[in-house]
Design a protein around this nucleic acid. Structure first.
Lengths: 265, 265
DNA sequence: TAGTGGTCTAGACCACTTC
DNA sequence: AAGTGGTCTAGACCACTAA
């Protein structure tokens, strides 16, 4: 038999999914359920904690427990890297989707720190340099209004960015056009990319930094950016709140029986 | 001040990450920590539960609590769909990576049910048919040995698959070459795809079905498969244990200032 | 049978928000 | 001050595993 708290949570979950408790609406108070014989305070609390971990409700002291309003996923695709946006225009690549959808961009919505650090293993491997070599790390926390959405840390090889605006630790994007524009101006035009992503549970630090509800997973994205000759000019690691993004990729079905030049990169 | 259970969990987490408690090794028993004054049983238990939700440990009755051995992520890329594998060979597309890496495939590692159902909204939208039209749903639970790794449900339009092996509800892949081969034989050669993915917490049912540790997130993958003329021949939804997979995609940086024919699909 | 984690209770008290 | 969720305790008892 399932534990009492699980059964209570399941009953409430069903009523949430059926719409009986609408998004934003208050759930019964813990003390009320205790009085109506649903269990001791600990038991009812355990049920509410489970619902919170499952992303269905949000509890807060003094306020009560409400059904979590589901924010629509922001769909992001590779068009956010469109050269026309950062090469010819004024926009910054990774916030281009916001500009396109009419949401305004404010400079203080991104904080960053730039530092010269020894390359961690994954970074060294991506850049093809010895572990521990110096690289520039540009760490940003990107917000939308008051709400942090993701962190993004880019790693560059010193010989690619020394003397550019990228290593200037002013808050906000790396000047007009962002990091890709700076690389372009320095003679490194980005050509192709590889994105690798996986999900995991947030560390307690990440949960605090990104203001995540309890139990929320994150998606970690590793982006490697190449010039046409295959040189890696940027390796970036992003940590995204899972409930706020979905990623889309289009590709041809590969065919290794074909000649290589007919294939995609 | 952080709660007592959080502080205890953090102290233990640090000792796990530092390697002081190695993967597979037993953590102190709850009763021992209670006796040594770390708190009441509920408090210590709450700390252990938090560590479990964070993916660091696994508790089980009778056995104790051990540091969770981290299994390496299985990297999957688009080469798993290589036409050469399912068109010319004997393999099944989505398990091709297993064949390639030398692990043997056993027929009973996949269970499936085929049914004709009214199209859910997302399926209807992908296929461009009215919601509620009949489609064939082929639901599989894929395992590696005793361990379930993911579910995958493909939706087909009846006129594409009626009379083929796909609608034959025999356990195991849809015959030699799998579903793509069947479509190919029926005159629908797949050409390009779109994959859309996001992470969320597992529902209690999914956690049970996939034998997931408490608190584990899942990645939901939506795959749309097209023929060369843009017809959607398959729309599939997969639910993967997040801790077991990572996805990789390579692509050219788009440039909307270029002529369309120079662009990728 | 002994030992493990898991559940549950009753009640005290704490932290935070609103009035 | 009143009302909310959150923490903590002490102890009883349950469920599962191993010897």
């Amino acid at each position: 038999m399932a534990p009492k708290w699980r059964e209570l949570a399941d009953r409430l979950a069903e009523r949430i999914r059926s719409g009986e408790y609408a998004p934003g609406q208050q759930l019964p108070h813990i003390r009320d359920l205790v009085e109506s014989g649903k269990g001791s305070k600990s038991t009812v609390h355990a049920a509410y904690k489970a619902l919170e971990a499952e992303g269905l409700v949000i509890s807060s002291r003094g306020h009560g427990t409400i059904v979590r309003p589901q924010t629509p996923l922001k769909r992001i695709g590779i068009e956010r890297y469109d050269k026309a946006k950062w090469r010819d225009g004024d926009e910054v690549a990774f916030i281009a989707d916001r500009v396109a959808s009419g949401r305004s961009y404010r400079r203080n919505e991104q904080t960053q720190t730039v530092s010269r650090v020894p390359a961690p293993a994954a970074v060294a491997a991506a850049h093809g340099i010895p572990e521990g070599s110096d690289v520039y790390a540009r760490a940003r926390l990107v917000k939308e209004g008051e709400q942090p959405t993701h962190t993004l840390t880019s790693y560059y090889r010193p010989e690619h960015v020394e003397g550019t605006r990228i290593v200037d630790p002013t808050p906000g994007p790396a000047g007009r056009g962002g990091g890709f524009r700076v690389l372009y101006d320095a003679g490194y035009e980005i050509d192709h990319m590889r994105e690798e992503l996986f999900a995991r549970v947030a560390t307690p630090e990440e949960a605090k930094l990104l203001m995540l509800p309890a139990g929320e997973p994150v998606v970690e994205l590793h982006r490697t950016t190449y010039t046409a000759d295959g040189t890696v000019v940027e390796y970036a690691i992003g940590v995204h709140a899972a409930s706020r993004f979905s990623w889309a990729y289009d590709f041809k079905v590969p065919d290794s029986a074909k000649k290589p030049e007919e294939q995609q990169p």
